[in-house]
Simulated assay, not measured.
Amino acid sequence: MDQAMTQVFYVTRFTSFIQRLFSYYVKTEFLHNVGVNYLFAPWISWLLLLQSAPFIAPKTFPYLVLWWVFVIPLVVLDVKIYGQWFTKGKKFLPTVANPTSQLSVIGNLVGAQAAAYMGWQETSIFLFSLGIVHYLVLFVTLYQRFSGGIQLPRMLSPVFFLYFAAPSVASLAWESIAGAFDIASKMLFFLSLFLFTSLVFRPNLFKRSMRKFNVAWWAYSFPLTVLALASTEYAQEVKGSIAHILMLLLLAISVLVLPGLMVFTLFNTKMLLSDNDPIVNLLNHLPRVV
């Protein structure tokens, strides 16, 4: 009896410790102007998995329940982040805006796409509008490069690829809402293609970050994937040789990047631990504005 009580005691203490540790890291991320944007990443991933899951069809009850489970945290984070943009004064957004801020936009757009698959037209338009309007505000803010804003370390320069990830996701989301890859989707795709080209022709921006592998390299994967997906929809709509060549090129790049990142990560697994992750140390030294 005493042994059983002792085991229960230690299990309870261990569970409490894990809970406090998890709460500490989540709170630290939540209060960090760069880290808070990465809180969108799990919900974005799960929404994408929900859309691609072969065993959960849209318009079914499990799909509906999971959609709500994944979207509600996104909306809560939206209220926190966008609310600060509104209420903290005109200098707040130029100070805290950085390329990772676009993850909040991507979260809304992915949620809109998932809602469109269920036939929830009004909900999908609501989330799309929420994402695209704040993307315009964020895009203009980042474009002007206000002085005094957060300057990301060179090691985090791969997150600049998020510049073309947002319009790529927007083009796919609008296609799901409109039912066709129409002019609006093409405009968003062309914007993402232009931003991708602009970054490719500026290798010096990524030179220092590419000297040694770090977890930030994974920021290349998702933007390239959604850009390639948008190019496939564009090629199917246009049915031209140039569009198909562009599609094959982007698909090849996307396919090659993913296994390459997996191999590099496999040989650098120690970086996945927070104590050995240089990204964590860099973020801890960035200024906080709460």
Results as ranks from 00 to 15, higher is better:
Pro94Ala: 10
Val75His: 06
Lys88Gly: 04
Ala114Arg: 02
Val76Leu: 14
Glu122Ile: 09
Gly131Asp: 07
Val110Gly: 02
Leu39Thr: 11
Leu109Asn: 04
Phe70Gln: 04
Ala115Phe: 03
Leu48Glu: 11
His134Leu: 07
Trp46Tyr: 09
Asn33Cys: 13
Trp46Leu: 15
Asn98Trp: 08
Leu74Gly: 00
Leu74Met: 07
Val133Ser: 14
Thr60Asn: 07
Val137Ala: 08
Asn98Lys: 13
Leu39Lys: 05
Trp43Ser: 15
Tyr63His: 08
Ala41Trp: 07
Ala57Leu: 15
Val110Leu: 00
Ser45Cys: 15
Trp85Gln: 05
Tyr117Asp: 09
Leu130Ile: 08
Val69Glu: 05
Ile81His: 01
Lys88Ser: 11
Leu77Pro: 00
Ala53Pro: 05
Val36Met: 12
Val69Arg: 00
Phe139Asn: 07
Ala97Trp: 05
Ile106Asn: 13
Pro54Cys: 00
Val36Ile: 13
Ile81Pro: 01
Leu47Arg: 01
Pro73Arg: 11
Lys90Trp: 11
Leu130Arg: 10
Val140Glu: 13
Tyr82Glu: 04
Gly35Cys: 07
Thr95Cys: 08
Leu74Tyr: 00
Ala114Gln: 09
Asn33Ile: 05
Gly35Phe: 09
Leu48Asp: 04
His32Tyr: 13
Leu77Tyr: 03
Gly107Asn: 01
Phe139Cys: 01
Leu130Met: 15
Pro54His: 04
Phe126Lys: 02
Asn98Arg: 11
Gly119Asp: 04
Phe92Ser: 14
Gly89Thr: 12
Leu50Ala: 07
Phe55Leu: 11
Gly119Phe: 02
Val75Ile: 15
Ser104Arg: 05
Ile72Asp: 00
Gln121Ile: 10
Phe86Val: 15
Leu48Phe: 04
Leu127Thr: 10
Phe139Ala: 06
Val110Ile: 14
Val65Gln: 09
Glu122Arg: 09
Pro94Phe: 13
Thr95Gly: 09
Asn33His: 10
Leu48Arg: 05
Asn108Glu: 13
Phe128Ile: 04
Glu122Ala: 14
Phe55Cys: 07
Leu103Glu: 04
Thr87Arg: 14
Gly111Phe: 04
Ala112His: 10
Ile72Val: 14
Phe40Glu: 03
Tyr82Asn: 05
Gly89Asn: 10
Ile81Asn: 01
Ala112Tyr: 14
Leu66Asp: 04
Val96Glu: 08
Gly111Arg: 01
Leu39Asn: 09
Thr60Phe: 10
Phe139Pro: 02
Ser124Trp: 08
Lys90Tyr: 05
Gln113Trp: 08
Lys88Tyr: 12
Trp120Asn: 06
Thr87Met: 13
Ile56Trp: 02
Thr87Lys: 08
Thr87Pro: 00
Tyr38Met: 08
Thr123Arg: 02
Gly35Leu: 04
Thr100Asp: 02
Pro62Val: 02
Asp78Ala: 11
Ala57Glu: 15
Lys91Cys: 00
Leu74Asn: 06
Lys88Phe: 11
Ile44Thr: 03
His134Lys: 03
Ile72Arg: 01
Phe70Ile: 08
Ala57Met: 13
Leu109Met: 14
Leu74Pro: 00
Phe128Arg: 02
His134Val: 06
Gln84Ser: 12
Ala53Glu: 12
Ala112Leu: 12
Met118His: 01
Val79Ile: 15
Tyr63Gln: 06
Leu103Ala: 14
Pro58Cys: 07
Pro94Cys: 13
Ser52Gly: 08
Leu49Phe: 08
Asn33Val: 10
Tyr135Ile: 03
Leu109Gly: 03
Phe139Glu: 06
Gln84Pro: 00
Val36His: 12
Phe139Val: 01
